[in-house]
C-alpha cells in the first residue's frame, strides 16, 4: 500500500459524499433555512430583549444578529454531522456500509476519511451561510473568513466523530430520532450559541457550569473568535482534545461492532 493508494481512497470517499450531498438539493436548502430563520426572525424578535454588552472578542456593542451568527454556524455543523451519522446508520441497515468495509485499507483510515468528508461538507455549508448573513447586516472581515475555515473544519471533524460514535451505539434506525433529541437540543441550548454565558450565570449557576463543560460552547467560542481574526486558545484546546477523544472512541466502538 503506497501513500497514493490512501490518497485515492480518501479522495473517492470524499467525492462520493459530496456527490450524494449535491444530489439532495433540498438538504442544502433545509440546512440553510433553519439558521436563517433563527437569524432573521428569532434574532429580530429578541434584538431588544437581549442586549449584548461589550465582551471578548467584540470591541464595541454589537447587534444580536451578530452575536448569534457563530452559534448558528455551529448549529449548521451540528445538524449536518448528526444527519450524516443518521445516514451511516441507514447505510448499515441497508447494507451499503459493507462496500466500505470490504476495502482492503485499514478500517480506521476509512472512517477517518468519512469524518474528513463530513468536515469538508460542513465547512462548505457554513461558508455559504456566512456569506448570506451579510444580507442581514452581519459583517465579517476577510481575515475572519481565513481564520474561520480551519476552525469550522476542526469543529466539524469533532462533531462528525461524535455523530459516528453515536451511530455506533445505535442498533436500530428507529432509535436515532430519540437519541438526537437528547444530543442536539441539549448541546445547542446549553451553550453560548444563543446567549452569553454571563446571562446564564445570572439565571442559574448549575446551568452555567453545565454550559461551561459542554464542548459545543467551546466550538461556538472558537468560531466566534475566529470570525474576528482571533484564536481562543482555551476553546481551541477543548475542541481539539474533544475531537481526538471522540474520534478514538468512534474508531474503537466501530471496530468492536464490526
Amino acid at each position: 500500500m503506497t501513500p497514493m493508494t490512501y490518497l485515492y481512497c480518501m479522495n473517492g470517499i470524499v467525492k462520493r459524499d459530496v456527490l450524494r450531498f449535491l444530489q439532495q438539493k433540498t438538504r442544502l436548502l433545509s440546512v440553510l433555512v433553519r439558521p436563517l430563520l433563527w437569524l432573521v426572525v428569532f434574532a429580530a424578535g429578541f434584538r431588544s430583549a437581549l442586549g449584548i454588552s461589550i465582551m471578548e472578542p467584540y470591541s464595541t456593542y454589537i447587534t444580536y444578529q451578530q452575536y448569534i451568527t457563530p452559534g448558528l454556524g455551529g448549529m449548521i455543523i451540528l445538524f449536518h454531522c448528526m444527519q450524516s451519522s443518521l445516514s451511516m446508520v441507514y447505510d448499515r441497515e441497508m447494507g451499503s456500509m459493507k462496500v466500505l468495509l470490504m476495502s482492503p485499507l485499514p478500517r480506521p483510515f476509512l472512517l477517518f476519511s468519512k469524518l474528513v468528508a463530513g468536515a469538508i461538507l460542513s465547512t462548505f455549508q457554513v461558508l455559504i451561510f456566512l456569506l448570506i448573513t451579510r444580507l442581514v447586516g452581519v459583517e465579517i472581515e476577510l481575515m475572519g473568513y481565513v481564520y474561520a475555515v480551519p476552525a469550522i473544519f476542526l469543529i466539524a471533524f469533532f462533531l462528525s466523530a461524535l455523530g459516528l460514535m453515536l451511530a455506533n451505539l445505535i442498533t436500530q434506525l428507529e432509535n436515532f430520532a430519540g437519541v438526537m433529541n437528547f444530543v442536539i437540543f441539549p448541546m445547542f441550548f446549553l451553550s453560548s450559541a444563543l446567549y452569553p454565558l454571563w446571562k446564564m450565570q445570572e439565571a442559574s449557576m448549575v446551568l452555567f457550569l453545565i454550559c461551561q463543560f459542554n464542548p459545543f460552547t467551546h466550538c461556538v467560542e472558537l468560531l466566534r473568535f475566529a470570525l474576528y481574526g482571533q484564536v481562543n486558545e482555551i476553546a481551541l484546546g477543548v475542541v481539539f482534545t474533544s475531537a481526538i477523544l471522540a474520534c478514538s472512541i468512534a474508531l474503537i466502538t466501530f471496530r468492536g461492532r464490526s
Partner: peptide, 16 residues
C-alpha cells in the same frame, strides 16, 4: 442516487 460509473469509481477508490 449515483450513476453506474460513479458507483464503480467509488469501489475502485476503496481499493486504492
Amino acid at each position: 442516487d449515483l450513476t453506474v460509473q460513479q458507483n464503480l469509481l467509488y469501489h475502485a477508490s476503496l481499493h486504492g
